[in-house]
Amino acid sequence: MTMTMPDTAVAATAPLLEIRNLTKRFNAHGGGVVRAVENVSFSIGRGETFALVGESGCGKTTLTKLVLGLEKPTSGEILFHGADLATASSKAMHGYRRQAQAVFQDPYSSLNPRMRVSKIIAEPLMAHGIGDRDSQRARVLEMLDVVGLPKTAADLYPHEFSGGQRQRVAIARALSLKPAFMVLDEPISALDVSVRAQILNLLADIQDEFGLTYLIVAHDLALVEHFSSSVGVMYLGSMAELGPTESVFSHPKHPYTQALLASVPRPDPDHRAPVGVIYGEIGSAMAPPPGCKFHPRCPYAVDICKTTPPVDRELAPGQLVACHLAETIVPPVQSSIAPL
């Protein structure tokens, strides 16, 4: 199933990345199977920013690993420019790596402490045999400039930088191959509050400058609303709701999306999160509940939810909802947000 992106020129062209019925299962230590990702489908158009949200354990990190080719899917397809990664030859995979890069959450873990910044940024170029030493050096300096670091940064080690600066180095490295696609896994959540906006603005700027397509994983819904054009809400390995960010955030149709949105703490002393929207915690991916996986926590659950897994239904243009009752559920009244 292909999702059409509203009101953009790229809607007509084929998506850059298309995920079809993707499933990933792990064998757990001591027996049992972890169903990390189950039958997930979505697509990302060129120049779009697709956000994956959900609680820890919902499978969003596994999904990014699959997309980056760090894990092999159990079944399903990951089509990049129409070619399936799961069955790609190692040569085709190497070509894909030139196009798809990543920035991870923890800028302390994502830079090798024993390499100088120049080598960290040039490493992808070396891995693909692009350019000689001089041109690689030139690219390093160019990238440092793009991410707003001085040229002198090239000869320093990662520990000489603050968290925000390290994340700039990580972005420069991801950019050095001038890729078409970038995975951003919680790119700002490990940073100080006062530098988060710098990094977020930088990511927005380079997206415009280099025509990048983003897949961003985040737990901060305000950030997702701000930054993404489409969003997928995951719960226990499955996609609960999927669609253009604007319609999902203004008219959430899945009870889980509604609960998530209602729970976000807001910097407004007069806002009170409605208590008791949902109780309990996310279940185990080793023994997901039958039927709709969300039913044990869902305040609206009826008999059919306990037995039959819901299928995705398009309830608004581009907005797919996996809920039997989506049409009948009235979202809880959101307290309005007064301007500060």
């Binding site: 600066q165 006062s194 988060r196 906006a197 927005a204 901060d220 950030l223 701000h226 500060l340």
Partner: peptide, 24 residues
């Protein structure tokens, strides 16, 4: 003020966040 302006607020979409420059 800078902190409040630099974080995205749910329901108030802006094109750009007003970042605080520099480091602590």
């Amino acid at each position: 003020r800078g902190l409040l302006n630099s974080i995205p607020h749910l329901g108030r979409k802006r094109r750009r966040l007003e970042a605080i420059a520099g480091q602590p």
